[in-house]
Amino acid sequence: MTIRLRPHHLLCMLTYVGKGYSPTFVENYERIAARLSAGEEIELIEGPDDICAPLTADPEAHCHGASVTARDAQAQASVARLLGGPLGPGARITPSATLLAHLRKTFATGEIRSACSGCEWSGLCDTVAEEGYLGVRVAP
């Protein structure tokens, strides 16, 4: 199988430590984190993805909002620059140990974090990165 992710979730997966919007959201993310840790391929998509799934029934959920679409565009551009090529919908990425280490290193320096500006989880992500990614659920 393939895990469908929107671009900004390429950043979120780096610091996910088991916290989320609801118990159902966390349970879903835990399953996805295990699949990512096993190296399951990622397909980039536009709009709500497999992580968003528990929230999408609510038309007011933030995953449908313009601010999240803008966050996706920023994350897509940052990660594409880092990886040296286009990264649009349909692009496939394997979350290898090398890739995760590279993404985490540049996340910690702020190089790929422009999309995180204004995110309610940014403080938690700062702490996770500063503490060396202890307790992250997506691990090679």
Rank of each mutant, 00 (worst) to 15 (best):
D49P: 03
L44F: 13
E40L: 09
G90V: 14
G85Q: 11
L11M: 07
A61L: 08
H62Q: 04
L11D: 02
Q74D: 13
A66P: 02
L10D: 14
D50C: 07
L100P: 07
E40T: 14
L55E: 13
D58M: 08
A101H: 04
I51K: 00
K105V: 01
E43H: 01
E27H: 09
E27N: 06
S117N: 11
C12M: 06
L103W: 13
A70F: 15
I42M: 09
C12L: 09
G88R: 09
I42D: 03
G47D: 08
T56A: 01
P59I: 06
H8T: 01
I3L: 10
G20C: 06
G88K: 09
Y21W: 13
G84Y: 13
P89M: 07
G110D: 05
Y21T: 00
R137A: 11
R92I: 00
T127I: 11
L5Y: 06
L87C: 10
C52T: 04
P59C: 10
P140A: 12
S37P: 03
R35S: 08
R113P: 00
C125V: 05
R4D: 01
L99R: 08
E111Y: 07
L55R: 08
G88H: 12
A57D: 10
S22P: 01
L5W: 06
A61V: 05
A91G: 13
C119L: 01
C116G: 01
G84H: 12
V68K: 04
E30G: 00
